[in-house]
């Protein structure tokens, strides 16, 4: 019962943060601020929806001792690690490439990178 509530909580938090990320992707004015929304919010939301699967796997593995659920748990954990790592690196690569290709942050109070590499 408590575990089911925990799974439901994880799913709700995950879907809510994913929704905020997509909303930010649609609402923010320029590329870099959009990247803030997608990188942070969708990574966090996807970590929580996958954490629901991890909790579910751990729950049934402890209840039945079936090793199939241990596999589910460990693979969902690996998916979380892969997701967090790859999202951070690929957003950094995209931001760097965008700044190199001449897309400047449009509403911006200061841009130290453009001063160093014009």
């Amino acid at each position: 019962m408590i575990v089911e509530a925990l799974i439901l909580l994880c799913l709700v938090i995950g879907v809510a943060f994913n929704a905020l990320g997509v909303l930010g992707l649609l609402r923010f004015p320029d590329l870099y601020t959009r990247m803030h929304a997608t990188t942070k919010a969708t990574t966090f939301g996807s970590i929580f929806t996958s954490a629901a699967v991890v909790v579910y796997g751990a729950w049934i593995f402890l209840a039945t001792g079936d090793s199939q659920f241990l596999t589910l748990l460990i693979h969902a954990l690996i998916a979380i690690v892969a997701l967090a790592f790859t999202n951070a690196v690929s957003s950094h690569a995209l931001a760097r490439a965008a700044h190199k290709s001449g897309i400047l942050p449009h509403p911006a109070v200061v841009d130290r990178l453009a001063e160093v590499k014009p």
Binding site: N18, T38, S46, V53, S90, S91, L94
Partner: peptide, 23 residues
């Protein structure tokens, strides 16, 4: 670059939904 960011977001969401579809 905006399109690339959108594709990145779609990829993340597809991964999240695949993990749920496994259950």
């Amino acid at each position: 670059a905006d399109r690339a960011v959108a594709v990145d977001a779609v990829n993340t969401l597809v991964i999240a939904s695949m993990v749920l579809l496994a259950v």
